[in-house]
Design a protein around this nucleic acid. Sequence first.
DNA 1: GTCTATAAAACGATAGAC
DNA 2: GTCTATCGTTTTATAGAC
Lengths: 196, 196
Amino acid sequence: MTRTDTRERILDEAEQLMGARGYSGFSYQDIARPLGIRNAAIHYHFPTKADLGVAVIQRYRDMLAAAWKDFRAGRTSPRQQFDGYLHIFTHEAVRNQTLCPMGVLTADYFNLPDSMLEAGTTLKREVLEWLAEILASGRDSGDFRFEGNPEDEALMVMATLQGARQMARMIGTDAMMAIVTRLRSDLVADAGDRAA
Amino acid sequence: MTRTDTRERILDEAEQLMGARGYSGFSYQDIARPLGIRNAAIHYHFPTKADLGVAVIQRYRDMLAAAWKDFRAGRTSPRQQFDGYLHIFTHEAVRNQTLCPMGVLTADYFNLPDSMLEAGTTLKREVLEWLAEILASGRDSGDFRFEGNPEDEALMVMATLQGARQMARMIGTDAMMAIVTRLRSDLVADAGDRAA
DNA sequence: GTCTATAAAACGATAGAC
DNA sequence: GTCTATCGTTTTATAGAC
């Protein structure tokens, strides 16, 4: 049960640190110290830093896939599924002002090893495909209202979300939430969500 | 005339490198090599790396202030002034996929020395104030259409622009331009800009 | 699976000659 | 104003004991 516990705690710290300071902004020391282990112990689980970075992305992909599966199983409406993703996205942002792994990928792009870029390209595709699918079915069901094709709308939504989350560091999380709420209300067909 | 020429070329390289790889993603060596000078020569002009980072931000502020002054002097409509800013913003993004100094500030926030955070806070305030002013006068003149107060709209616009520019690294500059064009057409009151 | 010890390289920065 | 030379630190990573 505690077999791979250290590995998981390393990934927790790495995801946190990567979200806060970027891929080249944290070191093995930064992970080892709070965990009470040594540098070399991390290298046992993740031989190179690129391996660690890829593992963070892979775990994040698994988390999202599980969440999307839960959404489909539990709630029905596309709007509720979209809100589920917004909750995941904004919750961490408000809690510690980090970026999600996909935000790190775009922010730190030219610093990343090839293996991380490959994993990141897959992540990007999965997120945008899921979002476009939700938006498309949501427009059909009357949950959402937008012009153009769902793929373009998905890009627009992701850009605004990522930009807002990143700007939260300078404008605060309240202002970030205001942007997210506004984005959502622009997307929702019926009235009742609009602020003054 | 060539008195402070090296200093300016250092700033050119630094702005480029910072936009591509972030503040902690480039070194004095990265600047020195293409300029054909040595490490220590940069330290003569900018004693610490923080000094260099602050200088990049200051010069960018000056560039924007001059551009805004030209906008006011030359063109009249808020929409034309907004388009002028969009041109500056997207031009560099398409050319080399860098972030602007303000994008770097938010992306690299927790890696930055205090002096850069101070300069960055001023930059952020100036950009958002100018944008809110343009949006406000543009709505009065009929150039723009949006709900809520201009300050909130300015935040929404900046988040979308920064997010799109950052995502350009993964989705390409064409997709980025599509987002920017869409943002603009949502803002412009009369029809004729809308894509299918 | 974690440790000590260490290697090899890159980093920001300084001293002093020219 | 730029150079050579170097310092002290941190970085990723490896070898080998336990």
